[in-house]
């Protein structure tokens, strides 16, 4: 066992990662657990083994480009280190995945709170990824850390969206700012920032309507929202989370690319990771666009949102290695 296994030798570390493991149980059983079998059953490192590895990574939605780069680097490593035993690939694969994600940087995905007052967090994404639910979960999380939270019902388009947020607000116990007859999300968020400042609220979470990234008008609307926040908050940079559904395929890249052109995306909330989808597209997003993952959604309960941890995520994918 190499570095990675040692990392999880500590008890606390393992207990924390265990949560991911349960959440991603099905994910793991889906196809990535076959990685272990592939390596055990291979007699030598050859093209057919590389083909199988490619299959495993593509099936995890990591994407063709990232997979191709990944496999070619793996080949280089194998050649340089004269590795012949397939089982030795195990640690190299995990290390390489780390490299793809970390890119030699220290990734801090914690929320950047404004030490001097109000912190504004904007939620964006395509339709149906779980923005409203993620806001509710995050409100709960932040509140449980002792901060006061307010919600802004900026989805003025989808039927029932405002009611949905209001119901969550009631359950969590935080105020929801709405503007029933307005179809201008910027003005709702403007009002909410004013109200939050007046009431000395710590964190304001802003919901927005789901929008497909190729709809120019809707993206302009989002840009306006972002500018409104900037104007009201002055030099204080707000956080913007792009919410991505774990079942999303290669379109996730296009989402991340175009949304970050319109508003500076600080991190990704990866939702619905408790299904069989692996959410591998976020690795491609990180690899190609540099955007880190900040949170993961692991279930339907209000407590099912966790800070993203790359070690835990990879552990969740490859837990079989360490049992």
């Amino acid at each position: 066992m190499g570095l990675f296994a040692n990392l999880f030798a500590g008890k606390d570390r393992k207990a924390k990662a265990e949560k991911y493991k349960i959440g991603m149980e099905k994910t793991r059983k889906g196809s990535l657990s076959s990685l272990k079998n592939v390596l055990i059953n291979a007699n030598k490192i050859d093209d057919s083994l590389y083909d199988k590895l490619e299959e495993i990574f593509v099936m995890a939605d990591i994407g063709v480009d990232t997979t191709v780069v990944f496999i070619s680097e793996l080949k280089k490593e194998v050649k340089n280190r004269h590795i012949e035993n397939p089982k030795e690939l195990e640690n190299i694969i995990v290390d390489k995945l780390f490299d793809i994600y970390l890119k030699g940087q220290i990734v801090n995905t914690n929320i950047k709170y404004n030490p001097l007052g109000l912190t504004v967090i904007l939620f964006v994404g395509v339709n149906g990824t779980g923005k409203t639910t993620s806001i509710a979960k995050m409100a709960h999380l932040i509140k449980s850390e002792g901060k006061s939270v307010m919600l802004a019902a900026g989805d003025t388009f989808r039927a029932g969206a405002i009611d949905q947020l209001k119901i969550w607000g009631g359950r969590i116990g935080c105020q929801v700012i709405t503007k029933p007859d307005s179809n201008d999300p910027s003005s709702v968020i403007f009002d909410a920032i004013r109200a939050a400042k007046e009431q000395n609220i710590d964190v304001l979470l802003c919901d927005t309507a789901g929008r497909l990234q190729n709809k120019v008008n809707l993206m302009n609307e989002l840009n306006k929202i972002s500018r409104t926040i900037n104007r009201e908050m002055g030099s204080v940079q707000h956080e913007t989370y792009l919410v991505i559904d774990a079942t999303t395929g290669q379109n996730g890249l296009s989402q991340a690319k175009i949304f970050s052109e319109v508003t500076k995306v600080s991190g990704i909330v990866l939702t619905k990771l408790d299904g069989t989808a692996k959410g591998g597209i976020v690795l491609a997003i990180r690899n190609e666009l540099g955007i880190p993952i900040s949170f993961v959604g692991m279930g339907e309960k209000i407590t099912d949102l966790m800070y993203f941890d790359i070690e835990d995520y990879i552990y969740g994918l490859f837990a079989d290695f360490f049992e």
């Binding site: 995890a60 149906g128 999303t248 379109n251 989808a277 692996k278």
Partner: peptide, 12 residues
Amino acid sequence: VDAMTGQDAVNV
């Protein structure tokens, strides 16, 4: 089914 679904479309 969401048209943006990736490899998981088959499982689902």
